[in-house]
Design a protein around this nucleic acid. Structure first.
Lengths: 159, 159
DNA sequence: CAATATAAAGATAATAATGTCTTCAAATCT
DNA sequence: AGATTTGAAGACATTATTATCTTTATATTG
């Protein structure tokens, strides 16, 4: 298990990319998918969840695409996560017991309740504008490695 | 997405129960499954992963069952999680980018690296003996609610 | 040795997540 | 108006997860 589903991770990566291109208005999803090495149709579906939540605006036709509906410095990562994976990670019992805490708590209840609050804060702090700026300015990465980079990485591990 | 897979959660709940019964020697998986309201066959498969990792000892035949191979106060929750879900949650990039950090980091790299260490510590601190004792002494819960309890919970919400 | 109880292994099914492909609807451009 | 570009919607395929059922192997008991 990973913390976030693949759909969610794709949605986050795409969101940061779209934020980094926001000065160019509507960005075609095909361009985002190409940049991030994702399936365009699959990404379209994922981004629709953001459109349905009014996080993204979409526009059909030539010069169409998607862009964020609000100031990206005000859009927090947790909104993207909530729209795609839902908020269960931040509200549910770690042992999946319904009513945990309200009714008899599970043995992890207290430590997990505290921890998931911290986890939530982590994603509440991060806004798309800052993340996009970091990517631009520090050369951070949003896409998977290409073949050459994988080879480089492997040979550097051997040393 | 939940933090842990269902298999892992079942494995954890069963482990705490088995630890709480350890004075009785080998505990039949059928008994564990009945107590926790789980499918016995499915639970058998999950616990096999713990047996394969030498966390559990198993014994066939009458008076057989499973019990922990080591002092349960020395067995940490993270060992159960690692055996069932693997350690990716505690080692991998939150955006699923291979080589993140070694190579170009993703924009969440630093905050997530710190956070997953804290998460790991949470599960490294919890040992089965203490968890089992808490369940016994404080009436904590390992199983899902039965029908009556669900109704009680719903009616209390309405107030 | 026979009956029984148990974990292990395997077959199969159901469901959810992931991914691809096709068609449709709307907007733009000439 | 017709061609083109784009997001939306839907059909379908693949894979992983969750779950059930059957069979097998092994140990115990009488």
């Amino acid at each position: 298990m990973a913390l976030l589903s693949k759909s969610c991770v794709y949605g986050i990566r795409a969101s940061i990319y779209i934020a980094s291109e926001e000065e160019n208005g509507f960005i075609p999803i095909s361009q985002v998918a190409k940049e991030l090495n994702l399936s365009p149709h699959f990404l379209t579906k994922i981004l629709q969840e953001l459109t349905n939540e009014d996080l993204l605006l979409s526009h059909k036709g030539p010069r169409g695409g998607v862009k964020f509906a609000r100031d990206t410095s005000k859009i927090k990562l947790i909104e993207i996560i909530g729209a795609i994976d839902g908020m269960d990670l931040f509200t549910e019992c770690a042992l999946g017991l319904e009513g945990c805490g309200v009714y008899k708590p599970c043995p992890l209840h207290d430590s997990w309740t505290e921890h998931r609050r911290v986890l939530r804060e982590l994603f509440e702090e991060e806004n798309l504008y800052d993340l996009a700026m970091n990517v631009k300015n520090a050369g951070l990465r949003l896409r998977t490695l290409d073949q050459k980079e994988i080879l480089d990485l492997k040979s550097s591990k051997k040393k």
